[in-house]
Design a protein around this nucleic acid. Structure first.
Lengths: 205, 205
DNA sequence: TAGATTGTTAATCGATTAACAATC
DNA sequence: TAGATTGTTAATCGATTAACAATC
């Protein structure tokens, strides 16, 4: 009864499919095909069919995929048919920007907690949350049962924050610090670093 | 005399290697090995040696890699042994945050231009630049010979901004809009979307 | 029915790993 | 010299593509 292990690389493409489908839905389109979806996300039709078919038979021969139905299925698969509370660690420019970011709400995430170590910031309000002392982080995160965290502290402090997070129920970390962090088995980490992304492209200039 | 075609996936790892090396350098380390570097970035030693050897023989058997020397070579390979001017399109929360971001300066990038279509924002100063009317974008970018742009406008407007950028010398675009954009052959695009990154992980929760 | 498009298989392609001679 | 680590080759592994029967 164990779920077949799906490659990470496929999981990583599902959010792109969903994002495109949600956009299609705003344009009064009812069905789409692997070909059309492929053009939207820049991936071959064959690969899209193969990816989707890992999880079930969600299409109809001759017709394609019902956008509403496939979106629903993808949300279920990705566990975003609910809202996840998020904790943001670090209330500098990046942390503040994320706390106010409007793009989370309708994509399954809500910023619930924010922490910083600076007395200047503790107690201030950013977005809908009040910045707490980072000394309370483990306690607050555990109480709120938060499972998703965003690290937005300087690189020097990222590993120690990650170590603290390991004492909580956080199992998914989005890391904006420009350093690779070590986490316990079973905790997922994703990295965002604009300078790294830019450097990836300057090679071709 | 044509440069051997290096796979994209290898190019994408070079910035990570450089980032780790720069951090090692701050710790008074002189040399490192593929094994140690691999532990820093979470990649196997064999792969690191293979990646680096695509570009030359930068290590010494029995000793490893000189950190200063390898960093210099990587910067040359990635074309960041100089500073690239960057234009930011969209001066909302994300654009503003990026314009003020301190992490670009010492990694090869400087924000030189910013644009928005809102009269409220045009003329205001963010970071070191004054926000210009987006109507002047093509002209200003061409005059400043900027080759790198960051799109930070709503998804609805991202494609039209990309189309305008196609009329300039911009060849590298970092896209924060939550939509896949079409660009002419020869233009590179990278995507950053925090919600997509988070969704990638909730599958495993 | 005729046309279209899925789900799936087999073939291809590319990336990673393991192993080791070369050599510092 | 003995120990260590590179650069590289061959073997393995995994991902993508092409093709097509099934079927709406």
């Amino acid at each position: 009864m164990t779920k077949k292990k799906i490659p990470d690389i496929i999981i990583g493409r599902l959010p792109l499919y969903l994002r495109a489908l949600e956009r299609m839905a705003t344009e009064d389109t009812i069905v789409t095909s692997s070909k059309e979806l492929g053009e939207w996300v820049g991936i071959s039709a064959a690969q899209i069919r193969k990816d989707i078919s890992q999880f079930g038979e969600f299409g109809k021969q001759g017709t394609g995929y019902n956008i509403e139905f496939l979106s629903k299925k993808l949300r279920e698969i990705m566990n975003i048919d609910r809202v996840w509370d998020v904790a943001i660690i670090g209330a500098g420019d990046i942390g503040k920007g994320l706390a106010r970011y409007q793009g989370f709400l309708d994509r399954g995430f809500r910023v619930r907690l924010a922490f910083d170590n600076s007395p200047d910031k503790i107690g201030t309000k950013i977005g809908d949350v009040v910045v707490e002392d980072i000394a309370n982080m483990v306690k607050s995160i555990n109480e709120a049962k938060v499972k998703v965290a965003i690290i937005a502290v300087p690189a020097e402090n990222a590993q120690s924050v990650a170590d603290e997070l390991a004492k909580t129920g956080v199992k998914a970390i989005l890391n904006y610090a420009t350093i690779c962090i070590g986490v316990p088995e079973g905790v997922k980490v994703q990295y965002i670093d604009p300078a790294t992304h830019l450097q990836w492209m300057t090679y071709y200039l």
